[in-house]
Computed example of a mutant assay.
Amino acid sequence: MKPRNQTGISKFFLLVLTEDPELQAPLFSLFLSIYLVTVLGNFLIVLAVIFDCHLHTPMYFFLASLSLIDICFSTSTIPKMLVNLQAQNQSITYEGCLTQACFVLVFAALENFLLGVMAYDRFVAICHPLKYTVIMNPHICGLLILLSLFISITNALLHSLMSLRFSFCTELVIPYFFCEVLQVIKVACSDALNNNIFSYFAATILGGVLLSGIIFSYAQIVSSILRMPSAVGKYNAFSTCGSHLSVISLFYGTGFGSYISAAFTPSRRTAVALVMYTVVSPIMNPFIYSLRNREVKGALRKIMRSIPAFQLYSVLHEVASFLE
């Protein structure tokens, strides 16, 4: 098999979710519904944080940032999948593939960073409550977000620029339903040693170090909570961390599951793990935070009452609450 120059590459072919034509329309409707709910749910979280003055704290600032990232992360993968399902064509252009891989890297790394920052925020709030307003001031919060964004974009651009020098063989099938940089490296015919070294180095730093920081933060948090004399204080402290721990478990669990599945199982079986990582995880975050947080639920009720489409829902909810 002779490699050909990258300038001759016009298309890559992505993972086929199903070969049954009768399932194409139901899958399209399902993923379109999930995408719309993801965007709406996360957008409502952002609106709640912006318009409710009670939520103008570092914790909710990071929550709103996480919701924005989830919207962008979903938008980088799901719309192209919907187009392919509708057209029954799994191809993507060479330029489109590298662009999508770049955006996926940016938003996946950003979410990784933000979960680490949120863990640090909870660590300061519980372990150093008297210094919380000094340490987590608005300037520091904004700086943490900007630093995370800068590192994420720089990492994605370096990966993309290093991929531009590849030449590819005739087999251009990527076993994901979106373009991912490690899968692009695998289908390249040219030497990819430097790219692999950089990819694993970046994954170790962005994933391993941040995850270690999260684990360390929560080890300190648990230790601090267990030393609290009041049972009510322990419950309140655990409840403030419950939503974040759920999101962390969902993000890292589905992320590791999808990459392990892609590495050790046939490509078709990776579909479920990939859907959990890129589709289910972003849609679950607003539900996790809104269901477990009274302040967020209260802010969302205010927003829904101000939107005509949600007024009927609010009335029915109040009637149901009264009957209970």
Rank of each mutant, 00 (worst) to 15 (best):
N5F: 13
S10K: 13
K11D: 12
K11L: 09
L15T: 00
V16T: 05
T18Q: 00
D20V: 02
E22A: 12
A25I: 04
F31W: 07
F31A: 03
I34W: 01
N42R: 10
F43V: 09
C53E: 11
C53A: 12
H54Q: 14
L55D: 06
H56R: 15
F73L: 14
M81A: 13
A87I: 04
N89G: 05
T93F: 01
L98K: 07
V106C: 09
V106L: 07
F107V: 04
N112W: 00
F113G: 01
F113A: 08
F113N: 10
L115D: 06
A119E: 05
F123N: 09
G142Q: 07
L143F: 10
I153V: 15
I153S: 03
A156Q: 12
L161H: 14
M162V: 06
L164M: 15
T170P: 01
T170G: 13
I174E: 03
V181L: 09
V184I: 15
V184N: 05
L193Q: 09
L193N: 06
S199L: 11
S199E: 02
Y200I: 00
F201I: 10
G208A: 06
I214F: 06
I214N: 01
S217N: 14
V222I: 12
R227W: 00
A231E: 12
F238I: 12
T240F: 02
V247Q: 10
S249D: 00
G257V: 01
S258V: 12
S261H: 01
R268E: 04
A273Y: 06
T278M: 13
T278D: 06
S281N: 14
N285C: 10
S290E: 07
R292W: 11
R305I: 05
F310T: 09
V315W: 04
L316F: 10
H317A: 13
L323W: 07
